[in-house]
Design a binder for these strands. Structure first.
Length: 428
DNA sequence: CGTCCACGTCTAC
DNA sequence: TAGACCTGGACGG
């Protein structure tokens, strides 16, 4: 579920389903979780939620008992408790009957109802975490969605920070400055502004005002249109991209909130709405490469002609910063960045197989040897194999090539046709 | 069956 | 700046 919008939608969900609901008793943790116990016991309490960037805070508020005698010396909480959640790659909240608790529900809050219901923190991969009596993580910057003003100020006042030497696509994942932006949002944001992903961040952000000149238009919560905002900005003489970038970091996530679904969540009934909203991330016809941290960055493909793209890529590498053709990843593209394997198109129009040449995936002898000589349990051996497969791929297969799936002309020219233009893995 | 990939941090060389 | 931490879906043989 989890970039800023999903975390916020999760907090809205909690507030909606827990409205008027009374919880009670121990908060229970799954056997397998390594997160802390939550030492909160109360005969009757309510749950509310708020979000900030990529964190959610649950507040457990005891309900005052009518009978003071009842709460004496029973270890009952009478003070509220705050629990801070991060969602990792797969966290979400679920409110169900007790017999419908999802698999991988690692923290559970029980209602007083009979039969009772349960608010669960579900996290398949367990990269998420919770922190009872914690705080918002202090290293994280202001929320791009709900602390917009201080978010801008925080970026603008720290542009001399060395982190802004990095490519803009990598800096957008830095939660010290862009709390709430994740992998799909960075692609969507850069795409909207036509900013090549591997341009130095400072170059893109130089000249940005800490105050958004459009801010009195008080965007955004409902009915934002990124286009209109940038047009307004231009009317007001803002120098294009740069000032828009911070604004886009605000408006694009809010668009997802306003979609009404649950954002990036394949299990959601409205998931197709989210998929249709994506313009770049994992969209068929877009290019993708690995950034410096091995994360896939999606960006715009030349709409007219791949030859122009290839030429632009070549020329820009000769002259570094000078040339940015449409589709150019930018000058800071890692030297050994490779594109992921070409993804299959959706079956329907999958007539042309010529582009599906698979990249070599031969394991080196040395890797095999290493594996054979290691002593480990069968399960560990499997994990190890997978890990080695991963790193071997990263180390041996990187090329300067960028994925340019040959396919029908980019759908940019034609009206969006929803999931039809998505790559297969996003079809639902 | 095996391999690759995924919405994110963390921390140990 | 690799890896570690995890599970499971999609895909290929």
């Amino acid at each position: 579920m989890p970039e800023g919008p999903e975390l916020h939608l999760a907090s809205l969900y909690v507030n909606k389903v827990c409205d008027g609901v009374v919880f009670t008793g121990q908060i229970r943790k799954s056997e397998v979780s390594k997160c802390p116990d939550v030492p909160f016991t109360c005969k009757a309490y309510r749950i509310t939620a708020t979000s900030r960037g990529k964190e959610v805070k649950l507040t457990l508020t005891p309900i005052k008992s009518d009978d003071p005698k009842k709460t004496v010396n029973t270890g009952q909480a009478d003070q509220p408790m705050e629990i801070f959640f991060r969602f990792g790659m797969s966290g979400y909240f679920s409110f169900t009957n007790e017999d419908e608790i999802p698999k991988h529900a690692h923290l559970r809050f029980y209602t007083t109802e009979k039969p009772c219901r349960v608010l669960s923190f579900v996290d398949t991969r367990r990269f998420g975490s919770w922190h009872p009596n914690g705080t918002w993580q202090p290293e994280r910057g202001p929320c791009v969605m709900f602390e917009y003003k201080s978010f801008r100020e925080n970026v603008v006042s720290h542009l001399s920070d060395r982190v802004f030497d990095r490519p803009i696509c990598e800096v957008l994942l830095n939660q010290k400055y862009f709390n709430g932006i994740g992998n799909y949002l960075r692609a969507e944001i850069l795409y909207r502004l036509n900013i090549p992903p591997f341009v130095p961040a400072r170059t893109v952000l130089e000249g940005v005002e800490s105050e958004d000149v459009c801010e009195n238009e008080k965007p955004v919560y409902k009915h934002i249109t990124g286009k209109k905002n940038s047009e307004k900005a231009q009317e007001k003489g803002v120098k294009g991209e740069a000032s828009d970038l911070l604004r886009m970091c605000h408006t694009v996530p809010l668009e997802v909130v306003n979609l009404g679904g649950k954002g990036y969540n394949p299990a959601d009934a409205d998931y197709s709405g989210f998929v249709a909203w994506l313009q770049c991330y994992s969209v068929d016809g877009m290019k993708s490469v690995q950034d410096h941290n091995g994360r896939t960055i999606w960006f715009k493909v030349s709409s007219s002609c791949n030859l122009i793209y290839e030429a632009g890529f070549y020329i820009s590498h000769l002259f570094k910063k000078i040339c940015f053709f449409q589709g150019d990843p930018g000058p800071l593209l890692p030297k050994d960045s490779k594109s992921p394997r070409v993804k299959k198109r959706i079956k329907k129009d999958d007539q042309d197989h010529t582009y599906k040449k698979k990249k070599g995936r031969n394991r080196s002898e040395s890797t095999i040897k290493k594996r054979m000589t290691k002593k480990e349990t069968p399960k560990k051996a499997k994990d190890e194999r997978q890990r080695e497969a991963g790193s071997r791929r990263r180390k041996t297969e990187r090329t300067q090539e960028v994925s340019t799936p040959r396919r029908r002309k980019s759908s940019k020219a034609e009206p969006t046709t929803g999931s039809l233009r998505r790559s297969r893995r996003f079809a639902k």
